[in-house]
Design a protein around this nucleic acid. Structure first.
Lengths: 199, 199
DNA sequence: CCTATAACTGAACTACGTTCAACTGAGGGT
DNA sequence: ACCCTCAGTTGAACGTAGTTCAGTTATAGG
């Protein structure tokens, strides 16, 4: 029987990712423990390190899946959105807010994982981020046909960052009690105002 | 001699805060270790726990100081700013950016410290945050005299969150290589556009 | 069936924050 | 000047993490 080892290896890997995903989603990144993970997966702690370099690797794998789901949600919102490019931006941003709210712990894990200093962001991160940026810059190109691509890039990043900041601080417990509707209102306010042609 | 104990206690407290402040500023929150701290302060590890409940308490004390310096920098920028309320907002936001860039690790520690779930944010945090929000809402009241205070509050929060998001993602290593000038450009772009009266 | 090789095991190691029984010394009573 | 008391101080020890690796087990190929 060929590949029996590789099969089990792959199965264990899948299993570990699923368990870690559920643990993070339910109890946050801080609740992820190697021993609990091994116990739930029915394997020894050492087995985790045959499949992943360390726990951060595992978390990054979970994050890749989370980021992908996020991208898919935003894309879906865009597909259902009206033709008006400004409304497309609003709908996407609110989909981002929705995803963050409904997957709060998983979403936070995207940013809370500690990256080794000096290490580049993983490829999947840059790719998925690029995809999100494209979703934003396409409507922007329609709204501002006279600006060049460099201006589009800057505006795209500014816009994404602004929405991210609004959602981040809005969902934060420290600034407790920003109602979900207010977050959506701020998003719409910022986007409509930012995309209103001046003069 | 009265109060000799209290004196040493206060001196130790001051000393620990200064050492922790320097450690965080130089090497980040993650580099703060109880044993190193005690070793540098010339006391036993247990002594730390006579002065602070735990290391998080110490970090919160450092954060209070950091936040206060941040508020002072923004206030100073406001004092030197032109009369135009829009320019005041731009100048303050760029002062925020400047502070975050020049005190990157200390600034990150403001948000990276893990708050016990369900625990309210400390008073000094809410007070300092309120002060920052006042700096923002005052010019806004001049720019939008016809809107009510609830709208001002929403706009203030939206504005702060947007600037925070731009600085946060701009300084992040993952999205490596956003030049400082571009961050300032995005800030100015967002603020000028957000404060341009519609119609 | 046997053997070389790969995977798996879990006790042990390191590195944390935190605690607490034992110790020290300052301040007041005699 | 002397002790007595107790708050302050100490650092070894504890609990809990992530990670490692020598010993064990199972697989694939000859």
């Amino acid at each position: 029987m060929a590949g029996k080892v590789a099969e089990r290896r792959a199965a264990l890997r899948e299993n570990l990712v699923l368990i870690a995903e559920r643990t993070i989603a339910d109890h946050g990144l801080g609740a992820l423990r190697a021993r609990d993970l091994a116990s739930e997966a029915g394997c020894a702690v050492g087995a985790i390190y045959n499949v992943f370099g360390d726990l951060t690797d595992l978390v990054l794998t979970v994050n890749a899946r989370t980021f992908h789901r996020l991208g898919a949600d935003v894309a879906e919102a865009l597909a259902d959105a009206p033709q008006d490019p400004v409304e497309q931006l609003v709908v996407m941003a609110q989909a981002y807010h929705r995803f963050a709210a409904e997957n709060h712990q998983s979403w936070r894990a995207l940013f809370d994982v500690e990256r080794a200093p000096g290490e580049a962001a993983p490829d999947w991160y840059l790719e998925e981020m690029g995809r999100l940026f494209t979703y934003i810059s396409d409507p922007l190109a329609v709204i501002f046909p006279d600006r060049d691509s460099q201006e589009h890039a800057l505006l795209t990043r500014a816009l994404f960052s602004s929405v991210h900041g609004i959602v981040l601080l809005g969902l934060d417990e420290a600034s407790a009690g920003v109602p979900s509707d207010d977050i959506d209102r701020m998003i719409a306010l910022v986007l409509r105002q930012l995309t209103a042609s001046r003069k």
